[in-house]
Every structure is written in structure tokens, then in C-alpha cells.
């Protein structure tokens, strides 16, 4: 790759970053303006929350099971038989702080982000976004704000739900399937899992929600060129949102305090 190509790629990257930053700041400013699109907001709460619940349940259940399986193996192999009951807090900590928020984020990027990009992209290429404007509705306030707020609120809810399912499935695997001492497992889990661990994951999920909604709306609003353009916007949303979630997760994990007393 030549020097000019590298410079133009870098320029394109910063141009797109600028577009996202502009959309995000406009969305934030519009949060405080009236009228509030309550109907769209409620529809989005349902779309992001209720309709994503089945896929999150399944993901969290199998995420919990496989994490419990590997933790059981690890304790059994390296510490010795009988030590598996100490896996409870590790499973719960890993699930609530990392695995469930990440899984919820990635699943929501695939289901919710892509659907936002496809819906808004179709509206854009069929001039429905322009029609909104001519009929007195600011497209950002009508399309982006309710989706962003709904995703910010619903992803934490989905994460809490996923945490519960994941922890229960981890417990079922260890106690019911592998015969680990249930009392010790539960006592250890409750003793070592702190509220802040759960809150860290919930906070991350809120950030992921904003990332998914902003990227989905951004890609939808810049879609052009017919059905192919909508397809491209949808694919880009999933890729960009997933990568952004993974990168931001590292930084959030790094910079959020390990516990509240720190």
C-alpha cells in the first residue's frame, strides 16, 4: 500500500469518525428538546427489549453452561476433586462483568442494530426521511433519539436478565449435572459476588446500547443506492458495532474501578 493510499484511508477513517461524533452530539442535544416521540420510544422499547429476550435467553443459557463446564474442568484438573464448588463466584463474576454484557451487546448488534439500519436505510432511499422533515418532524429527533434512549435503557435490562439465566444455568450444570455441593457453591457465589460486579456489566451494556443505536441509525441515514445500499448499511452496522463493542469493552474493563471502594 502506497503512502497516498494510507493517507486517504486515514482521512476516510477520521471523516467517518467525525460523522458519528456529529450524529452523537446532535442526538444528545435533541434529548432535551420537545416534542418527545413517545410512541416511537415505546415501540422501540418493545422491539429492543421484549423481542430480543428469547435470543438473549438462549445465548445467556448456553454461555452460562459452557462457562460452568470449563470452570468445573479447570478446578477439577488443576486444584483437585471437591474444589469445583469454588467455581461459583468465578462463574458469576465472569458472566456478570464480561461474558453476558458482551454476548448481549453482540446479539443486539446483530438483531437490533441491523434492523435499525435496514429500516432507516429503506426510509432514506424511498424519501420517507425527507418526507418526515417536510411534515415537521426532525429526522434525528424522530428516528435516532427514541432508538438511542430505548437501547440505552433496554440493554442493561437484558443484561440483568441474561445474568440471572447464565448464573442459574451455571448452577444447574455444576450442582444438578456434575453433583457439586449446592450449599457450598451457592454460599461462595453469594459471598464473593458484589453488587458492583453486576453494576459494571450493566453500565457496559448501557454504553453498548448507545453504540449499537448510533451506528445503526448512522448507517441507515447514509444508505444510498437502492436495496444493495440498504444491505451494505446493514452488514456494516453489524461489523462496526461488534468491533466497537469489543474495543470499548476492553477500555471499560480497564478503566472502571474493580470495586466501589477504590
Amino acid at each position: 500500500m502506497g503512502r497516498d493510499q494510507r493517507i486517504s484511508l486515514l482521512a476516510e477513517f477520521f471523516r467517518q469518525l467525525g460523522e458519528v461524533a456529529f450524529l452523537s452530539s446532535k442526538t444528545f442535544r435533541n434529548l432535551f428538546k420537545r416534542p418527545w416521540e413517545k410512541k416511537i420510544f415505546l415501540q422501540q422499547l418493545e422491539e429492543i427489549g421484549v423481542r430480543t429476550l428469547p435470543v438473549i435467553s438462549l445465548t445467556a443459557a448456553f454461555g452460562g453452561l459452557v462457562f460452568a463446564l470449563q470452570t468445573y474442568l479447570g478446578f477439577h484438573r488443576y486444584i483437585g476433586p471437591g474444589s469445583e464448588a469454588y467455581g461459583g463466584p468465578i462463574i458469576s463474576l465472569g458472566l456478570t462483568k464480561e461474558l453476558i454484557p458482551i454476548l448481549v451487546g453482540l446479539m443486539a448488534a446483530g438483531r437490533v442494530g441491523s434492523s435499525m439500519a435496514a429500516e432507516i436505510g429503506t426510509m432514506k432511499i424511498t424519501e420517507q426521511v425527507d418526507a418526515l422533515f417536510t411534515l415537521g418532524a426532525d429526522p434525528n429527533r424522530y428516528l435516532v433519539v427514541p432508538r438511542t434512549v430505548a437501547a440505552f435503557l433496554m440493554l442493561p435490562c437484558l443484561t440483568i436478565f441474561g445474568d440471572i439465566i447464565g448464573i442459574i444455568c451455571g448452577l444447574i450444570y455444576n450442582v444438578v449435572i456434575m453433583g457439586v455441593n449446592g450449599t457450598v457453591y451457592l454460599r461462595n457465589t453469594l459471598l464473593y459476588l458484589e453488587l458492583w460486579d453486576v453494576l459494571t456489566g450493566v453500565l457496559k451494556a448501557g454504553v453498548f446500547g448507545v453504540i449499537i443505536a448510533v451506528i445503526g441509525c448512522w448507517q441507515g441515514l447514509k444508505a444510498e443506492g437502492g436495496a444493495e445500499g440498504v444491505g451494505r448499511a446493514t452488514t456494516r452496522t453489524v461489523v462496526i458495532a461488534s468491533i466497537s463493542i469489543l474495543i470499548s469493552n476492553f477500555f471499560l474493563s480497564k478503566f472502571l474501578p474493580g470495586n466501589l471502594s477504590l
Binding site: T122, T126, E127, Q128, D130, A131, F133, G136, D138
Partner: peptide, 23 residues
């Protein structure tokens, strides 16, 4: 810009080429 422009569009009605009905 912004809300001022939105208020000004009140004076206009527009028929789009493909109607642009909200589907």
C-alpha cells in the same frame, strides 16, 4: 437552521416522486 427551519417548512407541502408514504 434547526427548529426555525422546521417551522418554516409549515408553509410548504410536498408530493414526492414515489409518494414516500410511511410504510
Amino acid at each position: 437552521r434547526g427548529d426555525e427551519l422546521l417551522r418554516a417548512t409549515r408553509r410548504f407541502g410536498m408530493l414526492f416522486q414515489a409518494a414516500a408514504l410511511f410504510d
